[in-house]
């Protein structure tokens, strides 16, 4: 359809975006990859100008071999998995609820979506102090009201607390996407099932849930990518202690706190590989959608 002239113009117009992103991806990635094979301790005077010692896969082996590695993988899996389970299940239920007719739909929708727009540092601080403070937090008041001893949430139930905070932030996202998906469900399909004699639960299992399948997959994949790199929530609340040191946070500490760039970079490469595994599945779905 397009003429030759239009094609070359298109290439020129695409160039800035492509070049910028290519640079953004390749330059730091190459550097990380390079550092990961070297001994690079700036505190001891290592620097690029003086040349870095090549150490092969030593950093990769040491990163996995360190005593903090497996706990960090465990923390990551717990937090990501916990948040996914909570947001998807509650998200489906909430989406179905919000899809029903009731008074004040618009306002309730706004209330439910609001947490997504709260910046991560604020939501972490608000939860840490206003909600979870063992003396003055709302939960402590509630516990005392119910005759129980208030809990030091962020030290005694640290992982659960982080899961709660992050779920609160991401539940709106899941709900909103699932609600959009539910609204695209053909009402006649449900009515046909009703005519076929399917009760409410059967309609949910056989029609609503399969219809939501794709949206749920997308929620899971996108959230996984974002959740794998949650940072501010941990930085502000526990600072990685009490078993909340995720892979991302461990790498951050290796790079920033202990200034072991080689080791941190090896960890970074692991994180990049992990993110890419998830990304491949997401891209496949998105790509299919493009062909439409």
């Amino acid at each position: 359809m397009a003429t030759q002239h239009a094609r070359s113009a298109a290439r020129v117009m695409m160039a800035p975006a492509v070049i910028l992103l290519l640079g953004w991806m390749l330059v730091p990635l190459t550097m990380t990859l390079w550092f990961s094979f070297t001994r690079y301790l700036p505190m001891r005077g290592d620097s690029i100008e003086r040349g870095l010692d090549w150490v092969g896969f030593e950093n990769y082996v040491r990163f996995i071999g360190s005593s903090s590695f497996w706990p960090s993988v465990q923390a990551t899996l717990l937090i990501v998995g916990g948040v996914l389970v909570i947001t998807v299940i509650l998200g489906v239920l909430l989406a179905i609820l919000l899809d029903q007719p009731f008074w004040g739909q618009g306002i309730v929708r706004i209330l439910v979506i609001a947490p997504f727009f709260v910046m991560p540092t604020v939501s972490a601080l608000v939860w840490k102090n206003m909600m979870m403070d063992p003396v003055n937090g709302m939960l402590a008041h509630l516990w005392r009201f119910l005759g129980m001893t208030p809990v030091s949430w962020l030290s005694d139930a640290s992982v659960q607390s982080i899961i709660l905070i992050v779920s609160w932030q991401w539940l709106p996202f899941a709900t909103l996407i699932l609600l959009t998906a539910i609204q695209s469900l053909d009402r006649e399909q449900l009515e046909a099932a009703e005519m076929d004699g399917a009760p409410v639960m059967a309609r949910f299992w056989h029609i609503v849930l399969p219809h939501l399948g794709r949206a749920i997959t997308i929620v899971v994949l996108i959230q996984t990518i974002f959740l794998l790199s949650i940072f501010a929530e941990i930085f502000v609340t526990t600072g990685g202690s009490f078993g909340t040191r995720t892979l991302t946070y461990l790498i951050f500490q290796r790079v920033v706190d202990s200034q072991n760039i080689g080791l941190g970079s090896a960890g970074g490469v692991y994180a990049i590989i992990l993110a890419n595994i998830v990304a491949i599945f997401l891209m496949r779905i998105v790509g299919k959608n493009l062909d439409r």
Partner: peptide
Amino acid sequence: MLPAVGVLY
């Protein structure tokens, strides 16, 4: 999808 922490340094 590039994890930020991987390219922080």
